[in-house]
Design a protein around this nucleic acid. Sequence first.
DNA 1: CAGTATATTGAACGAACGTTCAAATGTCAA
DNA 2: TTGACATTTGAACGTTCGTTCAATATACTG
Lengths: 193, 193
Amino acid sequence: MPKPIDLNQAVRQIRKFSQENKRPPSFDELRKLFRYKSKNAAFWLVDKLIDSGFLKKDKQGKILFDSFNGVRLLGTVQAGWPSPAEEELADVMSLDEYLIKHPDQTFLIKVSGDSMIDAGIHAGDLVLVERGRQPKHQDIVIAEVDNEWTMKYYEKNGKEVRLVAANKKYPPIKPREELKIGGVIVAVIRKYK
Amino acid sequence: MPKPIDLNQAVRQIRKFSQENKRPPSFDELRKLFRYKSKNAAFWLVDKLIDSGFLKKDKQGKILFDSFNGVRLLGTVQAGWPSPAEEELADVMSLDEYLIKHPDQTFLIKVSGDSMIDAGIHAGDLVLVERGRQPKHQDIVIAEVDNEWTMKYYEKNGKEVRLVAANKKYPPIKPREELKIGGVIVAVIRKYK
DNA sequence: CAGTATATTGAACGAACGTTCAAATGTCAA
DNA sequence: TTGACATTTGAACGTTCGTTCAATATACTG
């Protein structure tokens, strides 16, 4: 038999194509990518990748790449750096899909101020905010207090609701009238450099 | 003239299709999506969206959606909640593309331990690590110290290199021999719930 | 060496693709 | 009412699409 093909590398090439073109390749584009002379060789390759669970096809037979935008998810810091073999097997995860469940109701907002500093949320961080969701006890919310918007812990004991900053400088707030909640923080993102 | 179409809503529908199908729609799929009877109506719509800068086409004429995975990027927390008009105009940003410049060299690792707690990096957070990059002064790196991998600040004064934890509990380390750097932290991600 | 499973070629098919053109529709202003 | 313009229809074109089939090449096994 001819030399067996490296499925992992094939997937990587297809992922690269998809990232660059923002869409999965067609079979003829795959033929060029792998330097086949026949389109059917690509067809055959894709079938093999599907059998191995790397790819899918949609109803029209087009290649469906579940998460061509993403990073490999490895173990923990302590585990240190994995071997190349482990790297290959790592799951690829799209941060967008992982963090954003409801794209229409989710926004990215830059943090200013230090009211949540003890929760590890610094000025300059980005927070993913989902609006229109009912906050639960100890969720971090964006709320309007005295005509100003801030981030606070949402604390509910029985019927009493308090807004608590993660910073001793700021006292807890018991909203007297209606409580305006802009949204619930679902994630924090800090980018360096 | 017939009633003008809502470009913003059109873009939103196309984005939704792209998210669900992991690829941009074809013109015939657009026809169905907008309930046109002629494929050319969709063609015309796309032309208009391109003129307005919402879309592009690639060399093959296929619809190219720059970031159909993404969130709308709004202002700051203090600015509070924007009006619907502002929401429409907000830039859509893909977290994957924003955070990951070199997909092949970037990994997601779960943080254990508290060595970087004062830098707002908690146990359970995810860090994006880029390998094979030369760390600069004050970068956060993953390094091997005494056969253990940890996160530390990389500090370089002249020729002397130190690894400093963001936690007073741990003393700075001056590596005696070679210094094994696993990678440089480019982002921190914390997901709630 | 022959046998066999894997891998690749080449040609062909109907369907879906992006694109074009001419014609028809609706709606507002004059 | 009419003219001007924006939108939609419908049909047609060459091209690329996913898929199929038969034939061939490759490299390991017995």
